[in-house]
């Protein structure tokens, strides 16, 4: 599929939680092609500061409305620029970039931590009508706005928070052993902090369940030209997170 660069008109850019915004862009060419796991590479300002684009995972694409949606946390200068834009504006956007998730198996388990839930949302939509079970983790209740968003797509939702303000106290990894022991999952998808994904991959291996991970890294071009984002592959090669990922089979890139 050809990648493209378009000026996407902002349909909405609304706050959905503290420092978290949902951006809906009218970009029909990208919406028509995007698959779960892919990302947009967005020029957040027409200035030299910030200079580089920001990669944002696609949380859904609506081919009929011609829109793509991304959910982002305002963490630095780039996302602050993006947060300041409104529906009168448009943003220059490359996409859809990267490789998506493999739609595989009949009993998927999704495990997402924090903003790692953003690409899993698009995936959950594509996995329907399979019965989906998801484990979602965050620091506190305010971060778990995801629960309502995943509600319609998932059969079972397990929530963990670091402080115990919603769901069980702890991290996603704590609830996984019991789930894997009792469930009949034939595929695991995960996206979140590196340490979380490493733990999940280890368990998936233990239970012999295929697993895909979605990685992130600092990147400049987003299309395999700059080699900022490469990671060590288990076959000895370097893997480009932007073009060979961001979704990988666990055995390709995880210890």
């Amino acid at each position: 599929m050809p990648k493209m660069v378009v000026d996407g008109r902002i349909v909405s850019n609304t706050e959905i939680s503290v420092n978290v915004k949902e951006l809906v862009l009218y970009a029909p060419e990208i919406a028509a092609q995007a698959v779960p796991g892919q990302f947009l590479h967005v020029r957040v300002a027409n200035s030299y500061h910030p200079l580089l684009r920001r990669p944002l995972s696609i949380s859904s694409a609506d081919n009929i409305a011609g829109t793509v949606r991304t959910i982002y946390r305002v963490v630095g200068q780039g996302t602050a620029c993006l947060a300041a834009l409104s529906s009168k504006d448009s943003v220059n956007c490359m996409g859809p970039l990267g490789n998506g998730f493999a739609i595989h198996g009949q009993r998927p388990l999704l495990v997402g931590g924090g903003m790692g839930l953003a690409p899993l949302m698009f995936l959950a939509g594509a996995l329907c009508p399979r019965p989906i079970e998801i484990v979602m983790g965050g620091r506190t209740k305010e971060e778990m706005f995801w629960k309502d968003m995943f509600h319609v797509m998932c059969n079972t939702i397990h929530v963990t928070t670091d402080d115990g303000t919603l769901g069980s106290r702890g991290v996603t990894l704590d609830v996984l052993p019991d789930l894997l022991k009792n469930g009949a999952f034939d595929m695991i998808y995960t996206c979140g902090p590196r340490v979380m994904m490493e733990g999940i991959v280890k368990l998936a291996k233990e239970y012999d369940i295929p697993c895909q991970v979605s990685l992130e890294d600092y990147m400049a071009c987003g299309i395999g030209g700059c080699l900022s984002c490469t990671c060590a592959g288990n076959d000895g090669s370097r893997k480009k997170v932007c073009t060979e990922g961001p979704v990988f089979w666990a055995q390709e890139v995880m210890p």
Binding site: Y48, L51, A220, S228, T230
Partner: peptide, 18 residues
């Protein structure tokens, strides 16, 4: 190539250590 983070954005520029 080099280990660790390879790029850093700077005012009107970037540092790379690929």
């Amino acid at each position: 190539g080099n280990k660790g983070r390879r790029i850093a954005e700077t005012p009107a520029g970037m540092l790379n250590s690929i």
